[in-house]
C-alpha cells in the first residue's frame, strides 16, 4: 500500500449548478491526523462524503491508499466513516445494527471482544437492545462511532465527531484517534472546535467557500500570520477573512 493515505487533487462537488467544493487538493499521510476546518457551509461535509464514497466527485482525482475512489468496494473496506448527522437504521437496535455492519464487512465472531470493549468504553451497554429511533442524539453518535471503529480501518473519516458527545465519550474518542494514528492509521476529521484541532491534529487545512485557503501544522500557520501569540481561531478568522467583519459586527452590536 502507498504511503499516502489520502490524495485529493482538484476535487469539485456540484449540487445542481452550485459548486460546494471548488478545486480542493490535499494529502494525508499514514499515521497523520488531519483536521478540516471551515465555517458552516464551507464544504467540509461534502468533501468527507466524497472520501467515504457516498458522493461522487463532479471533477478531480481522489485516491485512498493509492486506489482510485472509483474502486468502490476495495476503498470502502479501508475506511470507517462517522457522518455528521447520525441517521442510522432507526428501527434496528444497536445490537442488530452492529450485526448488520459486521456481516456486510465480512467480520467474524472474533470481532466480539473488540465490540464489547468499545461498548463498555462509550457506556452504551444499557441501550444495546433499545431501538435506535428512541436514542438521544449523543447515544446515536456513539453507535455510529463504534460502527466506524469496529473493523479497525486504516483510514478514519469523522464529520464533526465530537458534537453531541458527553465529556467522557469525547475524551475517549480523542484518545482513540491519537492511538489510532500512533499505530499507523490515518485520520481526517472536520470540526468547529479549534482547541481540539489545535491539540490533536498534526496538520490542518482551512477551507472556505469550497476552496483551501490555508494548510499546514498549527505552527506553520502561525508563521503565516507572523505572530506567535495567535490561536488557531485567530488564524482561522484571518485566512477566511472574517476577522474584520466580526470586529465591526461586535462593535455595532455593543453600541446597540
Amino acid at each position: 500500500m502507498s504511503e499516502l493515505a489520502v490524495n485529493v487533487d482538484g476535487l469539485c462537488v456540484m449540487y445542481g449548478s452550485f459548486k460546494a467544493v471548488d478545486g480542493l487538493s490535499f494529502k494525508i499521510n499514514r499515521g497523520e491526523i488531519y483536521g478540516l476546518l471551515g465555517p458552516n457551509g464551507a464544504g467540509k461535509s461534502s468533501t468527507l462524503k466524497v472520501l467515504a464514497g457516498i458522493l461522487e466527485p463532479s471533477y478531480g482525482k481522489v485516491e485512498i491508499f493509492g486506489k482510485p475512489i472509483s474502486e468502490e468496494i476495495e476503498v470502502k473496506k479501508l475506511i470507517g466513516y462517522v457522518p455528521e448527522e447520525s441517521i442510522l437504521l432507526e428501527s434496528l437496535t444497536p445490537r442488530e445494527f452492529f450485526e448488520f455492519i459486521a456481516s456486510v464487512r465480512g467480520l467474524s465472531g472474533e470481532v466480539n471482544p473488540r465490540l464489547s470493549k468499545l461498548v463498555l468504553a462509550f457506556e452504551l451497554t444499557e441501550y444495546f437492545d433499545t431501538p435506535i429511533a428512541t436514542l438521544s442524539m449523543g447515544t446515536k453518535r456513539k453507535v455510529s462511532v463504534i460502527s466506524a471503529l469496529l473493523h479497525e480501518p486504516p483510514l478514519l473519516i469523522l464529520d464533526e465527531p465530537l458534537i453531541g458527545l458527553d465529556a467522557r465519550s469525547s475524551r475517549i474518542l480523542k484518545e482513540l484517534i491519537v492511538h489510532h494514528a500512533r499505530k499507523g492509521g490515518a485520520v481526517v476529521f472536520s470540526t468547529h472546535i479549534m482547541e481540539v484541532a489545535e491539540k490533536i491534529c498534526h496538520r490542518v487545512g482551512i477551507i472556505h467557500k469550497g476552496k483551501l485557503v490555508g494548510e499546514g501544522t498549527v505552527s506553520e500557520l502561525r508563521q503565516l500570520i507572523r505572530s506567535a501569540e495567535v490561536s488557531l481561531e485567530d488564524i482561522f478568522l484571518k485566512v477566511t477573512q472574517q476577522e474584520a467583519g466580526i470586529r465591526d459586527l461586535i462593535v455595532a452590536l455593543e453600541e446597540g
Binding site: G53, I79, R105, I157
Partner: peptide
C-alpha cells in the same frame, strides 16, 4: 433508508 450512512459500507 439511512443510505447517507450505509453507502459508506463495502456492500
Amino acid at each position: 433508508l439511512a443510505s447517507a450512512y450505509t453507502r459508506s459500507l463495502p456492500l
